[in-house]
Each structure stands twice: as C-alpha cells, then as structure tokens.
Design a protein around this nucleic acid. Structure first.
Lengths: 108, 108
DNA sequence: TTTATATATTAGAATATTATAATATCCTTA
DNA sequence: TAAGGATATTATAATATTCTAATATATAAA
C-alpha cells in the first residue's frame, strides 16, 4: 500500500481526535444547528466553534446552509457517523472490560 | 453526554492518526509479526516502531506474545479493524468525488 | 560469564494541534 | 449608509505528538 494513502487516511481520522468535534457531530446527529446554537450547547467560544466547523467542513463531514446572516450546519456524510459510533463501541467495550478486571481484583 | 466520554472517545481515536500505526495495523491484518519484521517492513527505526507498538498495546489494539527474545504482535480487537476500514472507505469516496469534480471542471 | 541480538524506554528537538484574543467580513435593519 | 448581530479568519501562547539518539533490559549463544 502506498505511503501516501496511509498519510491521507491518518489525516481524515483526525476528525475524531478532538472532544469538541465529537460533541459537534453528536449535536448534528439530531439535525441542523447554527454556529451560535453549537457555541452555546458546547459552552465554547464562537471563534473556537467556527474553527472546528471549518475543519469538519474541509474534511467533508458537514455542510453549511446560509440563511441570512446565520449559517446552519448539517452532517454531509452519514458513513462517518457509523465509524464514529463504532469507535464509541470500542471505547465502551474497553471500559466494561476494565471494570470487570477491577471487580475481580477487588474480590481477592 | 458527559464531557469525559468525549475526551476518552477522542483519545481512543488517536490510534488512527499516525500513518505508521495504520501501516502496522495493515501488516498485522495478515497475521503475527515481530518487532524487527515490522521495523523492516515499514522502513522505520526499531525504536520508533516499538513506541508505536506501545501505544497500540496500551489502547488494547494489539497483544504481544514473547518467544525467546522475540516479541510477536497480533491484532487483539477485530472491531477496530472494522472502524479502520470504514474510515478508509470514507477516504476513497472522498478521493473519487474530488476526481469527478476535477474531471467535469476539465471538460469546460 | 562475556558477547550478541531483540526489544523497550527515556530525553530532547522539531513539528502539529488547540484555545484565546483580536479583528475582519457579511448580512440585516433602522 | 450606519449600526448591530452572526460568523469567519488570523496571530499567538500553551500543549501534545512524533521522531532520533542514546541507553536499558532481557534472552541466547559462545
């Protein structure tokens, strides 16, 4: 496999390495949201939310719709939601496993 | 959703943000490999490969098997492979889309 | 027990990412 | 067209990541 593919693959996976971007994605699961709605919901500055939205937009995860001076964003690629959910499952399985290990250690 | 969950989720997704880790995962798809085999295959220093293996090991992606002085690693969590493949698909769809856009632009 | 081989760990330099602050742009309405 | 609200962009400080070089550890062979 070409080196370049690994680089691009790694690049696209950076979508998920910011808690705020994950939270934005989660918010947009339920439907369109404006920048200020997201800013409020995440309790994060408008500037920072816009930066994260720009990253998600450039990577093709979300798409904007302008209505007057308001920009609404929506999920543009549902496949990404599947990947996101799968990794969430991996996390939860891992947490469950750790919990069981701790439980059996406590018994002894 | 709890803030902490987003942080852990982002943390686990960092598995995929290094081209070398992706290449290691791809190599291990075919079966067990030793550190030196991987080092040679990736054309990367033993030290650096060991560092990446440590990260993958800590995140539960791979598991070691020692045989004498050699350590063989294998995939420990197949679900992670699914997530990895899904993101690769997302990448390829994106490349295909960009290609089509370039093509139709060239026609004009 | 010395030497060689395989892997792991650590320190540090180079680079990348994230958040904040300041500012710019764009749209609406008075 | 001036003012205000919504969003985007830019510079920068703080932090995190990655690689290299050096060293440590552990096993095997001589």
């Amino acid at each position: 496999m070409d080196q370049k593919v690994y680089e691009m693959h790694a690049e696209i996976c950076k979508i998920f390495t910011s808690p705020k971007r994950l939270e934005i994605i989660d918010n947009l699961r339920e439907g369109e949201r404006s920048v200020s709605q997201l800013s409020e919901s995440l309790k994060t500055s408008q500037s920072n939310v816009s930066q994260h939205l720009a990253i998600l937009r450039e990577k093709g995860v979300i798409a904007p719709r302008k209505e007057g001076s308001t920009t609404y964003y929506r999920i543009a690629n549902p496949k990404i939601l599947d990947a996101c959910r799968l990794m969430r499952e991996v996390l939860f399985e891992r947490l469950e496993k750790d919990r069981k290990i701790a439980e059996s250690a406590a018994k002894r």
